[in-house]
Structures are given as C-alpha cells and as structure tokens.
Design a protein around this nucleic acid. Structure first.
Lengths: 231, 231
DNA sequence: AGAATAGTCAAATCGCCGTTTGATTAAATC
DNA sequence: GATTTAATCAAACGGCGATTTGACTATTCT
C-alpha cells in the first residue's frame, strides 16, 4: 500500500534552512505518527458522534485534527476503517474503565454524565444501533460478551436479595442504558421537556440524579403484597 | 399503520347517481393521487425509519411504493420535503392517537409496542434527536407543546399523590420514552442482552412488561422516611 | 553526511444519488 | 371523440465528497 516511496529526483534546495538538531524526546517531536493518529481519532469521535457516519465529513475531521484529509486514508485506509478503529479503541477503553463493582445507581449516574460528553460514546452507541442491520460482526460479539457479564453481575445482586426477582436483569440494563443516553440521543425532546434551549451541565446533573433515583427506588425484596391477599 | 392513509377528501356522492361513464368509486380508480402519495409516504416511513435520512435511497422508497422515483419530486419536491411531510403527518397522527388519560404504565407498554413496529416512529424520533442541531424549527416547537402537556398531566398525578414529589415529571417522561424506544434504537444490544438473534414480538412483549413494572413500582407517596424527623 | 523512510500535502478522479428534463399515457370534461 | 389535465415514466445531468495519485519534506539510521 504505502510503500511506493521513491527518492526525490531533483528540486531546488531552499538554501539556509536553519534547524537545530535535537534528540527526539518523544513528546516534543514534531513528527509523531501515534500522536497524529490519536489526534485524528479524537477529532473523528467528536464528528462521528455529533453527525453520524454518513453526515460526518472526512474533511471536517481532518480539519479539526489539523491535518490533511489524505492522511486519514494513509493511516486508516478509509472513513469506514477510521470508524471501526474508533469502535475497537472504544470497547477496550470502556472495558477497562467501567468498574462493575460500583453501586448500580452510581454506575447509572456515571453513565449519564459520560453519555453526554461529546467525546464519549452515548451517541455512538445509538448511531450503531440505528444503523444496525441485524448481522453480528465480530465487533458486536465482543460487546455482547461484556453485556452478558453485566447481566451476570446483576443476577448476582438479585440472588443477594438487592433486587426483586421479578425483574429481568437484561431488561434493567437496557432500560438503564437507554435512559442514561436519553439526553444525548433526544436533545430536542430534552429542550422541550425542561424548557431550556440547550442541554446544560446542570441539566445533565439533574437528570442523572433523577434517573439514579428511579433506579434505586426499585423494590429490593419480594413485593410488599401481603401474603394471602388477592392477585 | 393508517397514518398516511387518510384520503378521499371529496365527499358524499349522492347515492344512486351514476355518471354515464361509471364514475370511479374513489377506492377503485387507478389514478388516485392521494392514494399514491399515501403509498409513497408509507414506503418512506419504512425506509427512513430503517435507514435514516442519509442512507435512505429515494429509489428504494419509490420501488417499494411501486412508482417511479421522479414522482417523489413531483409530489414532495425533494427527499427533504418528503421527510418533512412525514413529520407533519406523524405529529398529527400521534396527537390524536395517544390518549393521555391512560394509566402511565399502560401508556408505556403501548409505547414500547408501538416503538418497535418498524413502520412507527420510535426510530424516527431517535434519528431526529441524533441529527438535531440545536435550533428549533417550528416543527419541534409543536412537539414541545405536546410534551409540555404530558408534563402537566404527570404533575397532576403527582399532586394527586400517585407519584412521589421528588420526581421531576419531565425526567420521568424522558426516561419512559427513551427506555420505551430502547429495543428499536439498540437492537444490537438487545440481541446481545437477551441472547436472541432477532427482536421477536415475544421479546417486545416481555420487555414492555418489564418496563411497565419498573415504572409502576415507582414510589407513590412520600418516602418511607419516618414522619416527625427533622425539617 | 547521505540513504531510507515516515509523515504530510494539493490536486485530480470517479462513483453515487438526488434532481431535472421532456415526453407519454390514462382519466376526466365537454 | 376531442380536448384538457392529472399521473407516470426513462434517461440525462450535475454536484458532492471519498479516495487515489504523485510528489515533497522532515526525521532517523548508519
């Protein structure tokens, strides 16, 4: 692919270019592929998350990353490749970041805050879901494993009596997750509902609080229905 | 989904009065603009809902509607125009369809079932939210009014003691709505969580049940904190 | 130093897809 | 049955935007 490099045949050498020759301390080199790649990735997350795959312009991504757009092909082959790479890194990141020994409600709060951060993945998740075609590539498989693990954790708590038996952990997770992403996915509704003209940090906090409250008010043990009563 | 299928505005033909040339009973004429428009609209809802605006192909829509794609420009000016028309009719439809005197939990169940019907609007709502740019056109204004009304309804129930005062009705609505749409918006997660390889009607029913259970288990009155405590 | 290569870029290409054009056929009117 | 007009279509157009091409420049290695 990118190995058709050839020596420059000729050209006028601009004389008198003064450059000091310093040893490359890794963080101050000007040419650092990894750093540049990271910048592109960051910009890409922002743009993809905001506009979705189709509406995202690679020019836009390149611009924000401060590089030429061809560089994106150079590093990631294609727009799709870039997107996939984001997916990979993202899953790795959240796998190692989200501690599942947190209190469920705390986890939710954390999730809500994270979901609206444009650099984080709430919206990406929604885009993926909407674009989903029903066939499971290996990428989704991986995520599913993580989800199943979450289910296990909840089931554990259920067994410990923290959660009523009638609830299906899988359903609870989906509910929490989708509700947690709500501000990020339905900003237009949020504005209408809360009467603000933007989704402010305060609103995020308020909503996180509310959602956590809902979650944590789920009945813990068997329902308060008196044994022997009807229904 | 009869949303687009209200046509034949021209009214009551005097019975027994027949034209010499067998005046076409409105439902059996071959050339019926309204009917065709409705077919296009229906197909469009399906495609837009499934693929989103950008990925939807007007060829695809035309094909499903059984018409030539130019007809779409003819009737709706543009792809965007078609999309907007859907929005208009959709809001009208749901405004007159969803009865707000239902039990909240019932409403939720109804919502969940509706949201996964591919021909209905759960996904459209999510697309709109993700594509949202923060500026409110008149279209959203209209929806916001409806939402505010919903908020009022909930506030009412809150006043009646059915819902704990600590909950913000607006937040509850957003939670219910987003969670209700979850199967439609995150089908990939749903498959992973529930271990099915498709979102079956049974799953829909199960999930609706679960969500309703969560909603209806929200504390009704003041918290069980001991009365007579401080403040 | 100089060869080799990693990093960067501007500009041309090319396919896709929404829209326009201009004609055609069927229905309604007289 | 002739005229008008509503409905339909096939084919050409044109723009947008991702990708390719082909070079150029800085860095690193020996």
């Amino acid at each position: 692919m990118a190995m058709a490099t050839q020596h420059t045949p000729q050209g006028q050498e601009p004389a008198g270019r003064q450059r000091t020759r310093r040893s490359p301390a890794p963080h101050e080199r000007q040419r650092d592929a990894e750093r540049t790649k990271a910048r592109i990735l960051d910009a890409a997350v922002e743009v993809f998350s905001a506009k979705g795959f189709d509406r995202a312009r690679v020019t836009d991504i390149a611009e924000r990353a401060g590089v030429n757009q061809q560089l994106i092909s150079y590093y990631f082959n294609s727009k799709r490749g870039l997107y996939r790479e984001i997916g990979r890194r993202w899953r790795a990141y959240e796998a190692e970041t989200i501690p599942d020994d947190l209190d469920f409600a705390e986890q939710i709060k954390h999730g809500v805050r994270a979901s609206v951060d444009p650099r984080l993945g709430g919206r990406l998740l929604a885009w993926d879901g909407l674009y989903d075609t029903g066939e499971d590539d290996e990428e989704t498989q991986e995520r599913n494993a993580q989800l199943q693990h979450e289910v296990q954790v909840l089931r554990e708590r259920q067994r410990a009596g923290e959660i009523d038996d009638r609830f299906d952990p899988a359903a609870l997770i989906l509910i929490g997750l989708s509700a947690g992403n709500a501000l990020a996915v339905y900003p237009h509704l949020a504005r209408g509902l809360f009467g603000t003209d933007t989704v402010s940090p305060e609103l995020v906090e308020h909503y996180a609080e509310q959602l956590a409250q809902v979650i944590s008010s789920l009945p813990a043990a068997a329902p308060p229905s008196v044994p022997g009563s009807h229904k």
